[in-house]
Amino acid sequence: MAKIFEVTIWATGVLQDMEGRHASLLIANAADKAGKFVQAWDNYADLPDRVNVPLRKYARISDEEIEMRYEYENEHPEMVIIMQDAIIKGMNVLWGMPKGGVLVINTKRSVDDILKFIPNKDLLSKIVTVDANSIAKVADIDFMGGEGGVEVVGIGAGPSAPLVGAACKVTDAFSLENVVAVAANKDGVKKGYEQAVVTNL
């Protein structure tokens, strides 16, 4: 079995249910465009119909067919994306991350402020901060959770676009060009890439 690149996305219940899912779909669709085998799905146990509970969305990218398709969670995410910075105060967002992973976070705050709340920060090789809400000019796009449903058009109109754009700066698993191609807010993806602040740890 080939190595699988795992991405875990954290978002808030109902408010960011769709944007969180869009982040995983942007990543999967972009990698799919490059001919990779991909998977994008929601955590099944996180109860997405409760407002503001932390939710996980996942993406997997591989050069070969993904045989662990039905495993509920990403056990070893090399990349973690946070849609709303307050989530890090209550959750071990780096759960399962192997040493040398990266964290991409939607925030106005400084890297030092963020790291204060991550006790296991020694796992990280890089942290990327970007103010995706300001770039997208909106924090939450849709208040309707769409559990089990899949958006067919308009993926990445809100903060997911600049956030995934920022993630392109620190990975080869999916490219900026392909994320731009599949996102609704193409300008947002590019701005996210440009404005992302990468800090090596």
Binding site: L25, A28, N29, A40, W41, G148, G149, V150, V152
Partner: peptide, 8 residues
């Protein structure tokens, strides 16, 4: 071709 969940 679309990316659909079983529900969709």
């Amino acid at each position: 071709e679309y990316f659909y969940s079983g529900c969709a």
